[in-house]
Design a protein around this nucleic acid. Sequence first.
RNA 1: GCCGCUGUGGUGGAAUGGCAGACACAAAGGAUUUAAAAUCCUUCGCUCGUUAGAGUGUACCGGUUCAAGUCCGGUCAGCGGUACCA
Length: 801
Amino acid sequence: MREYNYSQIEKKWQDFWEANQTFKTIEDSQKEKFYILVEFPYPSGKGLHLGHQRPYTAMDILARKRRMQGYNVLFPFGYDAFGLPAENYSIKNKIHPAIVTAENVKKFTEQCKAVGFSFDWSREVNTTDPDYYKWTQWIFLQLFKKGLAYKKEMAVNWCTDCKVVLANEEVVDGTCERCSSEVVRKVKSQWMLKITEYAQRLLDELEEVDYPERVKASQINWIGRSTGAQVDFKTNAGDILQVYTTRPDTLFGATYMVIAPEHPFIDEWMEKWDKVMNIDEIMEYRAMAAKKSDFERTEIIKEKTGVMIEGIYAVNPVNNRVTPIFISDYVMMGYGTGAIMAVPAHDTRDWEFAKTFNLPILEVVHGGDVEKEAFTDCETGIMINSDFLNALPVEEAKVKITEWLAENKVGEPKINYKLRDWVFSRQRYWGEPIPIVECDKCGFVAVPESELPLKLPEVESYMPTDTGESPLASLDDFINTTCPDCGSPAKRETDTMPQWAGSSWYFLRYCDPHNPDELASKEKLDYWMEVDWYNGGMEHTTLHLLYSRFWHKFLYDIGVVSAKEPYKKRTSHGNILGEDGQKMAKSRGNVINPEDVMRDFGADGLRLYEMFVGDFEKAAQWSTNGIKGCKRFLERSWNLQEILNDSDNPELRPIFHKTIKKVSSDIETLKFNTAISALMTLINEVYTSGSITPAEFKTFLILLNPFAPHITEEMYELAEFDGLLNEQLWVEYDEALCKDDEIEIAVQINGKVRAKAVIPTGSDNAVMIDIAKAALGSALDDKTIVKEIAVPDKLVNIVVR
RNA sequence: GCCGCUGUGGUGGAAUGGCAGACACAAAGGAUUUAAAAUCCUUCGCUCGUUAGAGUGUACCGGUUCAAGUCCGGUCAGCGGUACCA
């Protein structure tokens, strides 16, 4: 018999699949469709790594199984190729990022094919392809036309090393997500997308989708909805200072107010009101707060600082009490109204501030000791010192005071979200140009759709500038244009889009990847969408997943797509860690190179081990010893050919049916590790029995095929079965045939196993108990039986006294 | 602080409330071999016992149950996310 020469076999079948376009998908209304999506990678120079292969293998297994189950499967792939690493590489090596990207894409594609992924390569997309980003720009223009894209002067997160504005989501602990350099605040004019307009729908419509609870929870958390009230405080400067609070019930306990250092009232008060006594002190504090980076604001011990604005005071609308106003950086301009009423008795931060500045702490909810700490419990507290709210529980007081505020026109119920608008500008070269022209007369004007794609021009230097302008800003030919509306000279926007743009809609392009007239035809979108199953990393839960849901909802609103949600089901994989249990990183020297692994164990060996290593949804530690076991299993599978003959072994029937059942259901629940162990158990039993029939052999090959497609296809061919293995139908099991004729049960006395007994499968409880008692023999002689419990085909428990 | 997740042999990990440790790795012993690799067989939670067996055991404390790794209450430890969000 031939030896198991995996490299030869794998090459043979990969070439065959490529030549025959085995996995090319076409629309087919006769078949039920199933759209499986993996997160397309950023094609980095390092190539495909184990962290890509694990989720891709999992979804490849699902795709192969679905095809055998008769579905029309869409399983596409592509590249999210805009982004900083390619640009940084270009800066260093003076090569155009498009060239670097093309090389990397070629490498990635070869590597994917070498693992045997059954992607439909005819649908490959690349976000840097002008035919693709034409539509990314088109979607941006639709957002602009609907008023959902706007430009705004704002304090942004500026990475001091990348010299680029970062989204809030890209700032990690006050440092840049990519380079870990310090991030500071800088005021710049930025394109923004109004994702906040969709906050409620992004929240509500989570109920319509099948996502893991942890994913839903972090989206809910990120959106951060809170309900409360907006309250108007009159000031002696004539303005009305609006505050947002989730605890309107504590309004009587407000003993001072705080506004953010960036609050616009400060400037107004300085200008038109000459009674502010400590202008210098306030300005100094403000300058200091502005200088603080995000890092300092979050990392420095949260000691409360601030300055009282002397000469200005506010009046509490419920009792007309005069209330001092402070400026402090513990209040953020970006949330609520940038001003708060401080209730030190019932808010921890206010309590600390009041202690530091020796301000009165007035208890209005009874239940704690407000001299020791803030009492924040909403469930047990009872209102006191609050006039018409006295004696009410907190929740009732909230309702009553909110009504009172509305009646007296000094406030209203208010919902707030932590989610902020999406900072959409990047001062970088390697991204989609934002298709907007700025005209002195007309303002911001959309580039006509007929001029899309607005291509990235060639530049000499990709280097971002210290002024914070994109490299495009130095190209006069690019910048200078005419206004599409009035024809006068105008300037192009030089910022580009963030990497999240292209990935916010790629799953739509896969449905119709070469369409020159639309992002995809309605007909094809209606056939393929929604995505039936989308697997990706937890790290994309609050960024990519939220952004793409936002864009999809917008496209739904303008009639491009027919479903509200893009993804019916989402699952998340755990990462592959190094052998030391740490994240794989060059600096730790624990990186496993998949090409080495495939050379030593084959693609099938690698696929199998990545699925066997542990719970798919949890992080797993790589083990070179572990993969040996999988290779051994494949060799034992190969050697089944030696014991293939016609002699029937009926005793194997139950285990075959059980295995079909287990493998089928385990793939659906992502329990690949136990599916493989079931196959291992099966093969062990087959060897014990000494032979396998052709029908059983074929069943085994079908079950193993999604996991190890090359070796099984080869064995199928060698066994001279008809056609190709990947064209066979998935195997079915018969529940009745899963059971052995006889089964061993445990016999317990008071829950402890005292004997074993063999019973015919499916025996009545009474029969089981009789057999069990017989098996116990004399052990029951001097005992009083209190209760007899039988669990069918499992055990008997006799309770005695 | 808040949200989420996880604590099971030497290791990775299995167990719809029903015999804890499936499957695999490592280790030890044996067979085969001139030898090694590969392969095959045996042992393998801990304690006592030569064996039979007995006791004990799923982070810790308590509860529910005939029966708890699993359910409930509390505690501890670790991991991930997030935060002066009013």
